[in-house]
Every structure is written in C-alpha cells, then in structure tokens.
C-alpha cells in the first residue's frame, strides 16, 4: 500500500491505521485511494483490525459535482470493511465528519468533543447515510433531535446515547486507540469477522432468519484451525497458541 496524502496508512502487520491528514477534506480527494485501501484490507488475511484516526480532520466538505455525488459515499466504503473498525475522533465532529464515523464498530473520543449535524439550518440535508445509520445506533427519538433540530451534544451525552463507546483524556487518545486495536488482535480474526457480519445482518432481517444465519456462520467456523486449537487448548489446559486467522 502506498502512503499518499491526504491519507496516510500505518500497517503494523495485524492491524492497519488509516489517518486523514488534512484539516479540510473533500470526499472526491480521498474516495478513490480509500476505496483501494479498503479493497486490499478485505482481501489481505493478515490484516485483522482497522483503525480510522480522524483527529486531524475539522471538516469534510460536500461533494462539488452533483453528477458524481451518488457514486462517492465514504460511509459505504467503511460499511464494506469486513473486519472490525475502530474510529478515533476529537474536537467538533460535525455534518459529513459525523456521518463518516457512523458505520464504524467502535468509536473513541475525548472529553471536550462535540457532535452536531447542522445541515438543516443551511438549506441542506444529510447525504452519507446519517438518516439511516444514526437511528440504528441511538434510536429514532434521539436521532430526530440531532438531525431535525440540529441539537449539539457533548461527549458525555454522546456516550450515554451509545454514539461513542469510550471517552478518554485528550492526551491518552492515541494510547487507548492503539490499546483497543491491539486487544482485538489477540482474538480470533475469523470469529470477529463472522460475529460482525451476523450483528450487521440482524438489522436487515427478522430474528429467526438471523438465527439461521448465525448458525451457518458458526458451522463454517467449526472447521477453522483457530477454533480447533482454541478448544483443544482449553480441554488440555494448555496455553492457547496465538491465532493464525486460518
């Protein structure tokens, strides 16, 4: 993978951190690079966890060309990532930047961050999935407050709503971000991917169909080398070998 501005990529082997480097980001500017990075993440079995560091971004602009607007969706790209995605944000998380964190699986922020979607006041509206993704995270009532009335919330309120998973001190943002990512690299990558996939599927199906899918994914995992070695180590009371993702 090439490190290309305005996106930088840190690849540790088992995890990858994608950082957006500019304060003001235009979606067109990053979309195609991000698309190739994500395609590689999905096919590269050595990458188990993905982190998005968005702390340097103050604003993601609207798409300039209306003809391209339907094709350029940053949230759609993130939704396509099969591996767990952890997002790191700080400061004022507004509009398109706010939308960009919604498809991530785990969100970390600091105590001073604020979250706002003010499109409604600017003869504008959400573009990148917020009307669909936000209610699935914080429920319909609170989503309407945020989207229809442009209500601003602080980190504490965002945490209480379930919009962010953890609030940390500003100076510890990177440390906790890396620690959370590294924690996930201790777990079975296949089990994480399958579990993520089953949870996401549950939004789009009824419970019984979802349970059948869960059953199928569980059965596929039965033949994995990691699963066999994990169960054998428990049975034989041995220390478990690190997972291989095979």
């Amino acid at each position: 993978m090439n490190n290309a501005e305005p996106i930088s990529v840190f690849n540790s082997g088992k995890y990858i951190i994608i950082s957006l480097e500019n304060e003001i980001i235009s979606p067109e500017e990053i979309y195609y690079d991000l698309n190739s990075i994500i395609q590689e993440i999905n096919i590269n079995q050595d990458i188990w966890v993905v982190g998005f560091d968005l702390t340097k971004v103050a604003k993601i602009c609207d798409i300039k060309s209306s003809s391209e607007s339907l094709n350029i969706s940053l949230t759609k790209l993130i939704l396509e990532i099969k591996k767990p995605v952890i997002g790191l944000v700080s400061g004022e998380i507004s509009n398109r930047l706010f939308e960009m964190i919604l498809p991530m699986d785990y969100r970390i922020t600091d105590k001073k961050s604020i979250f706002i979607m003010s499109q409604i006041f600017n003869d504008n509206m959400q573009f990148d999935g917020a009307t669909q993704l936000l209610p699935r995270i914080i429920g319909l009532n609170k989503s309407k407050e945020l989207i229809m009335f442009g209500k601003q919330i602080n980190s504490k309120e965002a945490h209480e709503m379930g919009l962010v998973n953890i609030i940390v001190d500003e100076e510890k943002l990177n440390e906790i971000f890396t620690r959370k990512i590294e924690l996930l690299t201790q777990f079975s990558p296949l089990a994480m991917q399958f579990t993520k996939s089953a949870i996401n599927f549950s939004k789009d199906t009824n419970t019984i169909r979802g349970m059948n899918m869960e059953n199928d994914l569980y059965s596929i995992l039965l033949s994995s080398k990691d699963r066999t070695s994990s169960i054998n180590s428990i049975k034989n009371k041995n220390k478990r070998k690190p997972y291989s993702g095979k």
């Binding site: 296949l190 994480m192 949870i199 419970t207 979802g210 869960e214 994914l217």
Partner: peptide, 13 residues
C-alpha cells in the same frame, strides 16, 4: 471471539 467461536444462541440477533 476470544475462543475463536461465534455466538450460536441468537446473541448476534
């Protein structure tokens, strides 16, 4: 996921 399993009793749903 710590044990390389997925939930099978409906948890993900």
């Amino acid at each position: 996921v710590e044990l390389s399993l997925t939930p099978i009793s409906g948890g993900t749903q």
